[in-house]
């Protein structure tokens, strides 16, 4: 048991120091029209991107994205950021995604990861999980969970990238 834990800790430390600056794995997701989208091709003309994993059954996720929605216009003006909201809703709830998104008027790009292929490839344990990518498409920051006020840190990180 001790050996196992040591093994994990060693890999973890190595991986964390190494993991930053990596880019997105190639996985095929669907957009809200049912069209295939390859995650390796996500881009924003050299400007930052936020990738937020969420689900319709996840309260903190909806809280997070509803809060970002209040700031989105302002953040876009300041930094040109684009938000991809990747839903991990499975077949039980995935058909409610578009009606929900429209009802709360989110302006994000919505992608569906119905069998969690992308979220697993990104190392997501459970949503919400937010990744910040720089203009080159490299992951520079990430955050798990959402507590009110986390948007301040997201904004700080975005401003760091912009300047």
């Amino acid at each position: 048991m001790k050996k196992n834990i040591l093994f994990i800790v060693a890999i973890l430390i190595g991986a964390i120091s190494y993991g930053q600056g990596t880019s997105l794995p190639a996985v095929t997701l669907k957009d809200l029209d049912g069209k295939d989208v390859n995650t390796a091709t996500l881009s924003n003309d050299g400007k930052p991107m936020l990738i937020c994993f969420w689900a319709t059954w996840c309260s903190p996720c909806k809280k997070e994205l509803n809060t970002y929605a209040d700031y989105y216009e302002e953040w876009q003006k300041e930094t040109g950021v684009k938000i991809y909201a990747v839903t991990i809703d499975d077949q039980r709830t995935v058909n409610s995604v578009k009606p929900y998104v429209n009802s709360v008027s989110w302006e994000y790009e919505i992608l569906s990861d119905v069998n969690k292929t992308f979220s697993q490839a990104m190392g997501v344990n459970s949503p919400p999980h937010t990744f910040l990518l720089n203009g080159k498409g490299e992951i520079v920051w990430q955050h798990v969970g959402y507590t009110p006020g986390d948007e301040e840190e997201v904004h700080e990180q975005l401003m760091k990238l912009a300047h």
């Binding site: 058909n95 409610s96 009606p99």
Partner: peptide, 15 residues
């Protein structure tokens, strides 16, 4: 079977 209609501010589904 699932059908849905949605527009800004409103969404409805039937399954």
């Amino acid at each position: 079977l699932n059908g849905a209609f949605s527009k800004k501010g409103f969404g409805v589904t039937a399954s």
